[in-house]
Each structure stands twice: as C-alpha cells, then as structure tokens.
C-alpha cells in the first residue's frame, strides 16, 4: 500500500465548492409568508404576473412579505398530487371535476366549495379553439375538417389534462349537434383516429405542435393559442370553429391546508384578488376571458364570440361527464386506441 490515500485536500476542496450553495438554503430565512398555488399547465405566465401584483398589493395593505410558490402540470395530475399530500394553500385548476376529486378523496375542502366565490368560483373563462400552421395549408375551418384523412390533430390526454377534457367535450358537443349520441360517438372516434400522440398536458401538446412541428392542427386553450403566437412568432393562424365549449377553470381554498399552515387570511385575500380590476386586467392581457365588465370591454375585440356549449346543459355537470366519458372504461377508453 504505497499509494497515498485519497487526498484529504481534494475532499476539503469538494466540500468548500459545495458549501456556499448549501449554506444559501440554510440562511435564506427572513421568514416571508409562503403561499403555494397548485395550478394547471398553461397558467404559468398568468400567475407569475398575478403573484407579483398580489405580493405588492398585500405588502402595501398589511406590510407582510409574501413568497408565492407555483406548481404547474396537467390538471388531473396536479389534483392527484394534492390528494397525495402536496401542501397547496389554493388550487387553480382547469375544471371543477378535479377539485371535486380533492374534496371527495382527501376532504381538504367542503363539497360545496364552488359556491363560496363569485361566478362558480371561476374568475375567468376560456374556450377551445384551433391553432393551424401559417396559411392553413390543410384548409381547416371547422370541426368537420378535423376528421378528414391525412389531418394530424394534436391534443393532450383527457385522462390527465384539463384542457384535453374541455377539447374532447367541445368535439363531442359538436358531434351531438350533428347526429345525437350516436353521431357524437362516431365523430369523436374518427377524430381521435387522427391523433398521432396524446400529450401529457396542454403545454406538452403545444410544444409537440409548435416546437417539434408535429401535426396540422392543435386543439388548444384559447389563451394558449394566443400565447403560442406571441412566443413562436407568426408561424401559426388561429381558427375559431363554428362552436365550442365554455371552459370554466375554477379556484379554491384548501381549508385543511390553510388552517395547518396558518395562511387562511392571505389565501382568501389571494383568491378574492383574482376578481379585482387589477387582476382581471392581467387575466385579459394573457388572453383569458375576464369577468369584470371593464376588462371585458377592454379586451372584447380580441375574443371572437362563438356559440359555446356549457358543461351543465350539454353534459349534465362534471360528475356525470366524468363518469360517462373519462372514468376507466368510459367512452374515451372505448373509442381511443393508441396508434
């Protein structure tokens, strides 16, 4: 054993190199109030701006410093994480059914949560529209064009993505109008035959379409379609179909979590802030359809008015829609076979 043992100096150097990074975590402790908003996929940019606005509003009002954390992913996946213990103070998800799941399985909030805030706890609405490649080379104008042979439709998986559920239901509502339940089933069967790959979330589907250049048309949140054009330049055209669905992404306070974290007051303030003129303006700016009349008027020109089916009228509410269409063995499982 003539070789020197592992150099002690080398070990010290390694420790010294990592120390500042580790120490940074330990000492960054001037105790702002932390709030966690667990949200769905396309709201990343929206909440980044709203969080900054709310933090300065709240500091002015109470003097408290806030550190608002964000987590984003497919709406169903995010709900699952909250059920499994992700310590969200508020959830801002893509559809009421996902928050119902949290209420039912983890009992973090009461079943009547949706009546606690104005407008069914949805501070804004949105809808599902088409994004096509520049000049619309495949001539896609309406839902009927999506089932033509040779058209690649990009959409995410309705099992885990909220936007994908709205897209599925918008398509189904169109089919229903054309030929009742049988017509609707036939229509969506043919539609999902044209889907080469199901994305994991709205953002995943968008990058598949825009970054990886797969498919001819993206079934997209209206806000996501506008954002794609903002981000990737004018390589795309937005197409409004003849009809779509009224998407209502709700927000809710998780009572058990905020009481455990002692954040009920600030979390309530946060959700109420979403209805304030300031937040409503940010909402309109990010291409979500605001509720506040002033913001509605300001951004009216950017949203085309088309007939929108509602989940309650066309599908009898989320509970029924989930059981019929998205539960294991439901209609989606029957009609979709991965290519």
């Amino acid at each position: 054993m003539t070789r020197p043992p592992l150099s002690r100096r080398a070990m010290m150097a390694g420790a010294a190199a990592t120390a500042p990074f580790l120490a940074g975590r330990a000492f960054a402790d001037d105790k702002p109030i932390t709030l966690l908003n667990v949200s769905y996929d396309p709201t990343r940019e929206l909440y980044k701006e709203i969080n900054a606005a709310f933090a300065s509003y709240w500091k002015g009002k109470t003097g408290q410093v806030l550190d608002i954390k964000q987590s984003h992913g497919g709406s169903g996946k995010q709900a699952r994480a909250v059920i499994d213990g992700l310590q969200a103070d508020v959830v801002t998800l893509a559809l009421a059914g996902d928050i119902d799941e949290i209420a039912q399985r983890a009992k973090l909030l009461p079943p009547n949560w949706q009546s606690r805030l104005p407008n069914n706890s949805t501070p804004y609405t949105s809808t599902i529209i088409f994004l096509v490649r520049k000049g619309n080379p495949k001539g896609i104008r309406d839902w009927a064009d999506l089932v033509k042979p040779g058209v690649g439709v990009i959409v995410s998986n309705p099992k885990i993505s909220g936007g994908a559920r709205w897209a599925y239901l918008a398509a189904y509502a169109y089919g229903q109008k054309q030929g009742g339940a049988a017509g609707a089933k036939d229509y969506i069967t043919r539609l999902y035959k044209n889907v080469p790959v199901l994305g994991a979330g709205a953002r995943d589907a968008t990058t598949t379409f825009a970054q990886r250049n797969i498919g001819d048309v993206l079934l997209s949140w209206e806000n996501e379609a506008f954002l794609t054009i903002d981000e990737f330049g004018p390589n795309y055209d937005i197409v409004y179909p003849s009809s779509s669905i009224l998407a209502e992404p709700p927000v809710a306070l998780l009572d058990k979590n905020v009481d455990r974290h002692n954040t009920r007051v600030v979390a309530t303030g946060y959700l109420n802030f979403l209805y304030s003129p300031l937040a409503q303006d940010i909402i309109g700016k990010h291409h979500y359809r605001p509720r506040d009349p002033k913001a509605v008027a300001k951004y009216a020109a950017s949203f085309k008015q088309i007939p929108l089916a509602t989940i309650d009228q066309a599908f009898g509410g989320w509970k029924k829609a989930s059981a019929t269409h998205f539960a294991d063995g439901g209609l989606f499982d029957q009609i979709y076979k991965p290519a």
Binding site: I83, D84, G85, R105, A106, R260
Partner: peptide, 15 residues
C-alpha cells in the same frame, strides 16, 4: 407516495 403520501400507509400520522 404509497407509503408516505397523504392517502398512503403512514400519511395520516405524518400529517
């Protein structure tokens, strides 16, 4: 997650 998640074996105790 199955062991320590909120719905897992030790979830309630941990919470």
């Amino acid at each position: 997650v199955l062991l320590f998640g909120a719905q897992g074996w030790f979830g309630t105790w941990l919470i």
